[in-house]
Structure formats: structure tokens, C-alpha cells
Computed example of a mutant assay.
Amino acid sequence: MRLILLAAMMCGVAAGAHAADLSDLPILRGAVTDGMTTSQVNWQGFYVGGQGGYGSSDENFSGSNANMLAALLDHNVIQQMDVANWNLGLGKQSSRSSAYGGFAGYNWQWTDVVIGLEASYLHGSFGGMSQASKELVSGTALTDGFFHDVAVNSSAAIAISDMATLRARAAYAWGCFLPYAFAGVALGNADISRTVVVHDAVSNTINGPFTPLGTLTATQVQHNHLVYGYSGGLGVDVNLIGGLFMRAEWEYVRFTSAVDTSINTVRAGLGYKF
């Protein structure tokens, strides 16, 4: 924040001095100076930079293992207990992580309006895990003539180590400031694991004793799995000197994979426009 205030003061001093110098020239007095734009920085061209930040990831695990459980119990007698639709309590989880990376892009400028394309990259440790279990005894004998005591253990986890966004930017140049908004597509590198374990026991009566019948297990592990989604956010670039500029930004990313994940990050960066 101090750096942004200092940059604003420098811009104000420079702009005031520049305006004073121009006002001394008779040819630039009157209508000509009235037509000057608010922007005095050339933002057009290629630029690169580095960034660091901090963010939170929110995972919604609800229903993430439902298809695995349904496939595991396909044509199994205990599916008469509607086990695949049990609410196992795999809910929402949140975590936080620092991150670092870089960005590169190109700007086109028309007077004070700036349009650009940019690629942004972050490396961090975003994700979480959830696990739950439920046990139920059938209220009546199933079609096999037995009462069943069914216990289900379910777990899911996601870890996103790298994410990149390709976004279109729209900005308005005001002195040395370039506030902007952006939207685009997001790609991520994720490790995803999901496990379902079903224990089944049977009895001739609802009160037991129950005899273990067997255990069914389904596991799916995906390493370096490509996840995709969309992103959007707001930011501001501040010209410091020459082509050097600093940046403050907020970005929202949502990945619609097997585990619905949303990531919010705030970042600070330093870049150079060629």
C-alpha cells in the first residue's frame, strides 16, 4: 500500500510539472490543452513480470463419490436399501496457501482505453480432503431373505499445485494508473483421489447376530490430472519509471472437475513493459 501511495504521489508531481511546462507555451494554451488526455503513460506493447500472493480454496465434495458407489453396488442386493444415494456428509472444506509465479501479455492502446491478452501462472498448494461414514440395518428382509447391516466409508481429496489462466483484459489509463478487469479460461494440475468401502453383514432376524458377508472397495487415483474452468477478477497496474510497473490483483478461479473447487487469490507483482 505504501508503494502504491508513493507511486501516486510521484505521478501527481510529474503530471503537475508537465502541465505547468506546457502551459507556458502559447501554442498549447486554450483549446489544445483542453483536449489532452488523462493518460501520460504508453502501455502498448509486450510485458512480463513476477508475482506472489495468498489465497483460499473451497472444495465441495458433496456427491463426488456417488457415481463410484453406484457402480460398485450395481446388481447387488443391498442396492435395494438405496445405498448409492445415502447422504454420507462429504460436504465443503476450505484451506489457505501462499503462491508465486509470473505473467506475460500484450496491450493495445487507444488514447486512454487499453485492451490486452495475458497469461498468468501460479504455483501453490490448494486443495483439501473430506471423509465420512454411515451404517444402516435394513428395516425388512431383502429379496435374498436376509436382513443386511451395511456400513459405507467414503473419502475424497484434491490437491492443485499449478494453475494458469489465459485472460482478456479491459483497462482505462489514468495518469500512471491502469485499473483493469479481466475474464478467461483456467487450467490446473491436480492430484485427485476418491475411495469407497462397503462392509456387508447378514442375519436371519433384524436383531442379529450379523455375520460378515464381505467387503467391496472402489478406488480412483489421478496424478497430474488436467482440470479446467474459468476465471475473472480486478486489478491495477502502476507505472513507476520507464517501463517498470507494479501490480495489485484479485482473481477468482473455479475448476469444475470431479471435485468442485473455487480458488480466490490476492497478489502483488512487479513487471516490465518493453
Rank of each mutant, 00 (worst) to 15 (best):
S57Q: 09
Y100H: 06
G124L: 01
F126V: 07
L90N: 00
G105Y: 03
Q93T: 09
A71P: 03
N107H: 05
L117Q: 12
S125R: 09
G102C: 03
M68F: 10
S95K: 04
G102K: 00
L72I: 02
M81I: 10
G63V: 00
N60K: 12
R96K: 15
T140N: 11
N76D: 15
N60Y: 00
A84V: 02
S125M: 07
H123S: 15
G63W: 02
A71W: 03
W110K: 14
S95H: 01
L136F: 08
S138I: 08
D144F: 07
A119P: 13
Q80K: 01
S130I: 02
Q80W: 05
I115Q: 05
A66V: 03
N76A: 07
L136G: 00
A104R: 03
V137C: 04
A84N: 10
G139T: 10
A99G: 10
S97C: 07
F126A: 10
S130R: 02
L72N: 06
E118D: 15
F103A: 13
Y100S: 04
Q131S: 14
S120Q: 14
V137M: 06
K92G: 12
A66G: 13
H123Q: 15
G101R: 07
L69D: 04
S98Y: 10
D144L: 10
S97Q: 05
F126T: 09
N85R: 15
L88E: 02
S130E: 04
H123P: 04
L90F: 00
A132I: 00
V113Y: 10
F126N: 12
W110S: 15
W110M: 14
D58P: 10
A70D: 14
N107F: 00
L69Q: 09
N65S: 08
N67M: 04
L69R: 06
L72G: 03
Y121G: 12
K92H: 11
S120C: 05
G116A: 03
G124W: 01
V113I: 10
A99F: 02
A141C: 12
N107S: 02
M81N: 07
W86I: 00
Y106D: 06
V113F: 12
V137N: 04
G105T: 01
G145D: 08
G63R: 02
N87L: 07
N87T: 06
H75Y: 13
H75E: 15
S133L: 05
W108R: 09
M68P: 05
G128Q: 07
V83H: 03
G145N: 09
S64I: 07
T111S: 09
Q80D: 05
Q131W: 11
A70W: 05
E118M: 08
Q79Y: 00
S97M: 03
D74C: 11
N87F: 08
A141Q: 14
E118Q: 13
S94F: 04
V113H: 05
